[in-house]
Amino acid sequence: MIAQVSNYTQSVDNTFIIVTGICVFFLLLITVLLVFFSIRYNKKRNPKALNIHGSTKLEVIWTIIPTLIVLYIFWIGWVDYKELANAPKDSMVIQATASMWQWKFTYSNGKVADTLYVPVNQNIKMKLNATDVDHSFYIPAFRIKRDAMPNTNNSTWFNAEKLGSYTLFCAEYCGLNHSKMITKLKVVSKEDFNNWLNK
């Protein structure tokens, strides 16, 4: 498991565990049945097959149960997403500009950096833009990703609850050095951040 650094990652990871659990259950069910039937009803053991044309009851059951399950999964995914979709009003705004193949972060006071410094326990709203081709702002530790594209105004937000240094990828293929378009997100204390910002 990768680091959990905020409330949001906690709830995404919970969703992940629930969904993975359901998926593993169904995979095991199907696999066990496939293997069991292949052995139990092998031609050597069962030379004569028995026709079973179908069963409306079963069809209904295995239509309705999966429907309910997927609707439930849809809902928990949507609830998480809803939280990510709207940045709180008190967020600190940082503009991220992507270009081949680097990130540029502009702070409200005009300071520009190529590493993203943020204060701990503060809502951060990232405004995302690109100068040339599509890029994507991706911090796995925060489970957030949003494309940064020319002529569009995307944004995302996060709140880092733990100090530390996290990897920030470009997740949308953008040419020759796409794989080198990596930088760091540094979560520092409020004091350190203010010192850094006004340096």
Partner: peptide, 18 residues
């Protein structure tokens, strides 16, 4: 089943393009 995981909005945000 992994498609279901990707269809889940919050998981897809993390998983897409990986």
């Amino acid at each position: 089943l992994t498609g279901i995981m990707q269809g889940t909005l919050s998981l897809d945000i993390h998983l897409t393009d990986t």
